[in-house]
Design a protein around this nucleic acid. Structure first.
Lengths: 327, 327
DNA sequence: ATATTATGTGTAACCGGTTACACATTGCAG
DNA sequence: CTGCAATGTGTAACCGGTTACACATAATAT
């Protein structure tokens, strides 16, 4: 392995000069620069990042902390993070937290010892003070930790308004809202959006809380549909719940979309594969990940961050679980 | 930050003794051991992994190279890898290769500079010689690189036999096999399994090659079904393709499972959410990941590896796209 | 002409560990 | 009693970089 000393010798300068040249720090004459470039080329020198880290107490590792990569929301996020990290020369460490604050803390401590450059955090159980005191750049997704930590989030409330109106415009008079867990910020924003939209109409509605789980949602919806046959629209605050609702509708013998319309929230790939295809309020998850990563890298590189709150727009994707709009 | 020197001073011994104690290398007297333990405790000393890496040229990073975490097969794999890595004190670096050999090479080079401990590789385009010469522990998934590199794989051929027989036993007389890309090893094994099973029956069959993509599969199946209405069973070599087939069946007006039965391969979560639920040959993806990681860590820690080929069993999951077996 | 300042470079300390080697001791065999 | 192996410990070199500081020279200001 060729080291900076080899390069220095070959170029006929000191290691300090080589280092200064490579890091573009301090003065280096044109002659020296040329000699070093040549030596680097010839020896195919590549800097050892570990040795550098030991000195600078920095690395180009980014930690991505998320509850569970298995949850269909996260792979795309991870993909986005990895893509932009790669362009900027960073490497992504995957951390599944299971929403467990102990695990999160543990990752933070472990990775800080490796001089991790920063974290992107998606979590709802997160131990806010711990993050606040982590003393390392952080960007949060969907959840404010404190006002120093930038947040990127979908426009959940507006998305819920759009989703609700989609049902209303298509003639729904009694809509069931599948509310997500109350600990989840985004779920609450969606609830607010739903309430705002539904109150501006004269439609009936009811709200049921259920976790973002397929089987649970299916059960809950079956029950609700049996108890109240006049429900003619369901707005689920996640696609997985919507899938559960769709299945429940099938089981009970309700025709979607003729007899019952369904709108989901998230825009995961699965929505397309259902029959009928799921109409949904799609988040631009990739964009969220990309924005979060860029903001994080800006922070890492001490560039100014213009805002501390980034909202990514949301889009209604119409598929088969809703009818066409009555004019 | 407390260093090994602080500990040495506090314990009244030299850094060498501390290091020997911490690494359980060389001789350390009981007295010294006690003093060091106490000092470590008191100072809350934690070893700096970067400094250690610089010396030992080893780290506890594991690289997970896969085509695209967004592909529903991989999150669960990643999860398994991360879980077992964590128990053994390793950290996982996520690498999306897009099946691009250049990207793969690049990751390998970049991470080797960080003294990565080893790689788990899932790829079909992989540059075999490059891996073979990487000079770092590797475990491959689903694809043999050379006989020195252990492989873990599902029992694809047997799975295909089971899946095919599931259709045959349920009365299918004309089955369409959706063959995956020919570059993919597992896809070919599945093809072999299908052929073996179908030839032992007197059923008609046809084979169509199509990528593991929803929309493509849907299109291909629509066409096939229109061209040949006597098809009464479809065996798709991936669940995503099966989902496409199911959708196509719906579009064309075929009743599943009464009129047409479908079996997929993979066992991704989505299968359950479809209506009817997808009968499929489920791989134990989590187990594959876990096995691969354990084998890798054994390699890393220079323990003997018993075998170089690990086959994870596969299981038929019966849901709604197949009928009950006629007695 | 002299004082500053900007430019350019090398030496050596340092980051926080590991480990080769030298130097004790102690125990036991011959 | 001597010799050699086993046990125990410290000093200092080393891993491969970065950077403070000292020093030298050229350019500019006064």
């Amino acid at each position: 392995m060729t080291t900076i000393k080899d390069v220095a010798k070959k170029a006929g300068v000191s290691v300090a000069t080589v280092s200064r040249f490579l890091n573009d720090s301090g003065y280096v004459s044109a002659d020296a620069a040329k000699a070093v470039t040549a030596a680097v080329d010839e020896l195919k020198y590549e800097l050892n990042p570990v040795a550098r880290s030991l000195n600078t107490k920095k690395s180009n590792l980014i930690g991505l902390i998320l509850p569970d990569i298995t949850n269909p929301f996260f792979p795309e996020l991870a993909r986005a993070v990895e893509d932009v990290a790669l362009t900027y020369g960073y490497t992504v460490v995957l951390c599944n937290s299971d929403e467990n604050p102990e695990k999160e803390k543990n990752y933070i401590e472990t990775l800080k010892k490796k001089y991790i450059a920063g974290f992107i955090v998606t979590s709802n159980q997160l131990d806010a003070p711990h993050y606040a005191n982590a003393n390392v750049p952080i960007v949060a997704l969907d959840r404010a930790i404190n006002d120093k930590i930038p947040v990127v989030s979908s426009n959940n409330k507006e998305g819920a308004v759009i989703g609700t109106n989609a049902l209303l415009e298509r003639g729904c008079r009694n809509v069931l809202f599948l509310r997500g867990p109350e600990e989840l910020n985004p779920a609450n924003d969606r609830y607010d959006g739903f309430m705002e939209a539904i109150r501006q109409s004269d439609a009936d509605y009811q709200v049921v809380t259920c976790p973002f789980h397929f089987a649970d949602s299916q059960k809950v919806v079956e029950q609700a549909l049996q108890d109240n046959p006049s429900i003619d629209g369901i707005f689920a605050s996640s696609d997985v719940s919507a899938a559960g609702a769709l299945k429940a509708a099938g089981t009970i013998g309700r025709q979607v979309p003729d007899d019952l319309q369904i709108v989901g929230f998230d825009g995961v790939a699965m929505g397309e594969m259902l029959s009928p295809g799921l109409t949904t309020v799609a988040q631009d998850v990739y964009k969220m990940g990309a924005v979060a990563t860029r903001v994080l890298i800006k922070q890492i590189e001490n560039k100014k961050i213009e805002q501390s709150f980034y909202e990514v727009p949301v889009k209604l994707v119409i598929r088969g679980t809703t009818r066409s709009v009555a004019e």
